[in-house]
Design a protein around this nucleic acid. Sequence first.
RNA 1: GGCGCGGUGGCAGAGUGGCUAUGCAGCGGAUUGCAAAUCCGUGUACACCGGUUCGACUCCGGUCCGUGCCUCCA
Length: 463
Amino acid sequence: MSTLTIFNSLTREKTAFTPIDPDHIRLYACGPTVYNYAHIGNARMAVVFDLLANVLRSLYPKVTYVSNITDVDDKIITAHLETGAPIAEITEKFTRIYNEDMASLGCKTPDIQPRATTHIEEMITLIKSLIERGHAYEPEPADGHVLFNVPSFENYGGLSGRSRDEQIAGARVEIASYKKDPADFVLWKPSKDDEPGWESPFGPNNGRGRPGWHIECSAMAEKHLGLPFDIHGGGADLKFPHHENEIAQSCCAHGHNNLDAFAKYWMHNGFVTVEGEKMSKSLGNFTLAHDLLEKYDGAVLRIALLSAHYRKPLDWSEQALHQAQKQYDRIAKALKMLEKFETRQIPPESDVLNALCNDLNTPAAFVALNNLVNRINEPDTPKGSTLKSIIISTLDLLGIEPPDVAQAENEHVNTSEFEGLLQERTQAKADKNWARADEIRDELTAHGYKIIDTAEGPKLEKL
RNA sequence: GGCGCGGUGGCAGAGUGGCUAUGCAGCGGAUUGCAAAUCCGUGUACACCGGUUCGACUCCGGUCCGUGCCUCCA
């Protein structure tokens, strides 16, 4: 059996993955804030951790993959104020779209997809515990804010490798006067009447307010996975401050001092870049997954997203897309040649699984997949059910939707409109009248079609 | 300024102390009336400068360049 090795951001080294409970692997990855369409950079996280979940499932009997939906956030409020759409409408719409788009990219819905707004109570419990243990405070006079006191957690900064002093030196944040320490961050904040809010024990107006950004993940991970759990994931930009703060909250709420009392392993995916620069909404250089799906097969986008190792930057370009499309076409061709065979349940190609077990080395996995697919051309390889089955199960492991061979066939244009011309050309060819044959090719080109001669006769393809 | 990551053949992108992926593009060939598709063949590249070593792209030190986080961000 293959063993999984992963790069643990917490220790900054590649180590063997040792489960807390080999009978039940528990994985959490920070999901999207639903106020807008997801761009292809956002999608990378979903694809990477979906793949990780697949690999874990093939290695262990039970896996619980939790990925949240953040449906209370200032950006959502901003979207509400700008568009006038009710908050619930915005969050429901973009949650649905996110799930649809990710499904197109071959991502299974996480086993549990908790929403922040249905875990307010758990967050309040956590905050109360932090106050009781002296790690959080309400500023005087109480105005509805609750802050986490960073100096109260000795090991703060251990994940991102920065000391508190460094942060203060580099701080570009305006320091709110109510903070005891410049690094302190918000656990709970008051809501204005026109902002979403929940009653709480904190501050005036029945404590009506809403949670800070970080507390939701602490609360939801703990509720659905228990502490500590195995792997916590997310984008590299969440490492600081979001993940750092999650660790601080969760450890302190339960009186732990060691950083891995929350999650044992941390994994961070790199960014999608555009011409070397991070794809981001503020730079405006993003491409929406939703738009790409109009033009490309989701499987092609998934291949493109996995074409670089997950920790490295991935430059998004037409060429990258073209390469991924070609890759997918090769798979389709192999499966087309194996069309007549039945498939059966069979384990995936071991070289692919081994590559993935090596810290999700997807480029190496594609090499192994290519070797597998290329067996179709090796004369001494038995072609048939076994080969087809192993290709299918390997694609399943990678989360790549197998190409629909039958549908590819239908993409050939209905030839009826040009039946006469095609017949004439076939006759011309039989008569070795190449001039006339080429003339007809040109004519059809003018109509926007390309003639492809196949064993079953001429076919048309849109140019 | 602090902390971090990276510089591999035309491009994308793994990897390893000596055997040197894979894909895209290109080139040559087979096949095809032509075309497309397909198949076969083809590329010793690892930023720069030192050091360690029998031997380094791979280890160590330095230089240059790019980029990320430190503010909401996958």
